[in-house]
Simulated scan of single mutants.
Amino acid sequence: MNDPMKDQPQDGLENPMQHPEEQPTGSDGSPKFGRLLIVLVLVVILIGFITFASEWLYS
């Protein structure tokens, strides 16, 4: 019932250009949303600071 060759490529048909298998990303594969959130908050604060500073400077 279980065919061991079922998961194996048949003469390169599953991978016709002979690309290597995908490499795992990161240490455990989970995305780092905490760092992204911190960077996003800092960018928003920086844009707000530039907005208020330019308003103060040019008015």
Rank of each mutant, 00 (worst) to 15 (best):
residue 31 P to A: 08
residue 23 Q to D: 04
residue 14 E to K: 04
residue 27 S to A: 08
residue 20 P to C: 01
residue 16 P to H: 08
residue 3 D to I: 12
residue 40 L to W: 07
residue 35 R to E: 10
residue 52 F to A: 14
residue 55 E to L: 14
residue 29 G to I: 06
residue 35 R to C: 03
residue 15 N to Q: 01
residue 33 F to W: 14
residue 59 S to W: 12
residue 3 D to G: 01
residue 51 T to F: 15
residue 7 D to P: 02
residue 7 D to T: 08
residue 18 Q to F: 11
residue 9 P to F: 02
residue 48 G to A: 09
residue 8 Q to T: 13
residue 46 L to Q: 08
residue 3 D to R: 04
residue 26 G to N: 05
residue 55 E to C: 07
residue 59 S to Q: 14
residue 29 G to Y: 06
residue 21 E to A: 14
residue 30 S to T: 15
residue 49 F to M: 12
residue 2 N to M: 08
residue 50 I to H: 00
residue 46 L to M: 11
residue 47 I to P: 00
residue 8 Q to E: 15
residue 34 G to H: 03
residue 54 S to L: 13
residue 32 K to A: 11
residue 23 Q to M: 03
residue 52 F to G: 00
residue 41 V to E: 05
residue 55 E to G: 09
residue 42 L to M: 10
residue 40 L to V: 07
residue 41 V to N: 06
residue 46 L to N: 02
residue 41 V to P: 05
residue 58 Y to P: 00
residue 18 Q to E: 10
residue 11 D to V: 01
residue 17 M to L: 14
residue 38 I to G: 05
residue 20 P to H: 02
residue 57 L to P: 00
residue 27 S to P: 00
residue 12 G to K: 06
residue 51 T to D: 05
residue 44 V to L: 15
residue 56 W to L: 05
residue 34 G to Q: 02
residue 33 F to Q: 11
residue 1 M to I: 12
residue 33 F to E: 13
residue 38 I to E: 07
residue 46 L to G: 11
residue 16 P to T: 03
residue 54 S to E: 03
residue 27 S to V: 09
residue 13 L to G: 02
residue 40 L to T: 15
residue 2 N to F: 13
residue 40 L to P: 00
residue 20 P to L: 03
residue 16 P to A: 02
residue 18 Q to C: 09
residue 9 P to M: 05
residue 21 E to M: 12
residue 36 L to F: 05
residue 33 F to M: 11
residue 6 K to P: 00
